[in-house]
Amino acid sequence: MKQATTALPGKKMITGIYIFVLVYTVVQLFWWGILLHQQSRQIAHYEQLELTHQMHQLSEPSAFMTEMQRLHHEERMRTLKYIGEGTIFLIVILAGAVIVYRAVWKQMRLQQQQQNFMMAVTHELKSPIAIVKLNLETLRKHKLDEEKQHKMLSATIRETNRLDQLCNNILLASQFEHQKSQPFFEPVDLSQLLEQAIQELRDRIQSHDIVSAIEPGIGMEADKFMITLMLNNLVENAVKYAPKGTEIRVSLGIEQNDLLMRVRDEGEGIPAAERSKIFMKFYRIGNENTRKSKGSGLGLYLTRKIVEQHGGTIIVDDNLPKGTCFEIRWQDYSPQPV
């Protein structure tokens, strides 16, 4: 809690110092321009005085006027030179300030997201580990009937699956970041693969009604593990934000030569301003200390990466009348043998 509360004042202080230095630099630039302009006027005044003292040496008045015009022209050229140089310096300073500010702010935001990620992962690890430890200690110390043992073992397996998926997400995110992810593409029955993954989700998730509408016999070149992980992340994201007892619908079908997969929930939906950010790594809506839902901020990031890796696109939209719809589209789908 202390880390989260001290981060904001630190950002404000750094931003304040940065703005002060930038304003001071710009003011100094304008002061430099004013001094150069005054110096130019003094030079022109001394040159005119000297020309007036030498006027008796000039044979004709026209020569005197010519020299005065030349002095005025030189003064104007010096003024234009100072204005041009000052304008260029000002543009360079402001452009550099914007670039530096954006880079620093991006780095600070990334550090904050990484801090939130570490807090979330710590919580995600401690919770299932504590449950697994408690269940195993209970089984060791107490003689339970077969039905209770089965329930505790099933709960333990569910929590170890959570740990396994979290580890997979972290490792896969690292591989994507370093461009080391190499999927194993093979002909798969996508319909059957999704049905199997949905059944496993039903066995593991009891809080929501997971409904499938899968068109049979759809094949494609895909990585089985990646596709399963993609579906798990989308469904578990829906579980986090949709009220208990509501329906989560997974559909797959061909529409107008495009292969479409949708995951719909009946939650509160995602604000339009957040939809372009939710696929960023570590990004989660809200504050890490106040949000109620668990998560590491990697699920949707990995989902987008996996979809792009398989040649598709993913968007998020409203699920009318209420909720969120994630739509994955493979354009110009060509049926593959299964």
Rank of each mutant, 00 (worst) to 15 (best):
234 L>W: 00
60 E>W: 13
108 M>F: 15
161 N>K: 07
269 G>L: 07
319 N>K: 00
302 L>V: 05
79 T>E: 12
19 I>A: 15
65 M>Y: 15
335 P>E: 08
311 G>V: 08
260 L>W: 01
331 Q>P: 04
193 L>N: 03
6 T>Y: 15
6 T>P: 05
120 A>W: 01
198 I>F: 06
99 I>F: 14
72 H>A: 15
57 Q>M: 10
174 S>L: 13
129 I>L: 15
305 K>F: 04
304 R>L: 08
117 F>T: 00
118 M>K: 00
337 P>S: 12
220 M>H: 01
123 H>E: 11
78 R>N: 11
84 G>T: 03
213 A>G: 06
83 I>V: 12
173 A>T: 07
267 G>Y: 05
309 Q>V: 10
15 T>C: 14
204 R>E: 09
126 K>Q: 09
18 Y>K: 00
269 G>D: 09
144 L>M: 12
283 Y>A: 01
299 G>L: 03
175 Q>M: 12
48 Q>T: 14
193 L>F: 04
219 G>H: 05
73 H>V: 06
31 W>G: 12
50 E>Q: 15
206 Q>S: 14
226 M>D: 08
293 S>A: 10
287 N>Q: 08
67 E>K: 13
168 N>G: 05
166 L>N: 01
179 Q>E: 14
167 C>V: 12
318 D>I: 09
152 M>G: 04
51 L>E: 07
155 A>K: 09
316 V>C: 07
247 E>V: 14
123 H>G: 15
191 S>I: 07
287 N>F: 11
101 Y>E: 05
21 V>T: 06
143 K>E: 12
250 V>D: 10
300 L>I: 01
219 G>E: 05
97 A>I: 06
74 E>I: 11
263 V>E: 03
119 M>K: 04
114 Q>M: 10
266 E>N: 08
161 N>H: 10
126 K>V: 07
273 A>R: 08
60 E>H: 14
186 E>M: 13
4 A>W: 12
283 Y>V: 01
262 R>C: 12
256 Q>V: 02
69 Q>Y: 10
257 N>I: 08
151 K>W: 09
8 L>I: 13
88 I>F: 11
135 N>R: 02
335 P>R: 06
327 E>G: 01
216 P>G: 05
104 V>R: 04
8 L>H: 08
119 M>Q: 06
313 T>Y: 06
295 G>K: 03
241 Y>K: 03
194 L>T: 03
41 R>K: 14
22 L>H: 01
260 L>A: 02
296 S>T: 04
193 L>K: 01
334 S>D: 10
154 S>L: 15
295 G>P: 03
202 R>L: 12
299 G>F: 04
257 N>R: 11
93 I>L: 15
42 Q>Y: 11
248 I>G: 04
238 A>K: 01
299 G>Q: 04
296 S>V: 04
152 M>H: 08
145 D>G: 14
315 I>Q: 07
248 I>D: 02
27 V>K: 04
8 L>R: 07
29 L>Q: 02
17 I>S: 11
267 G>E: 06
169 N>T: 00
221 E>G: 11
268 E>K: 09
128 P>R: 05
182 Q>M: 12
299 G>S: 08
302 L>S: 02
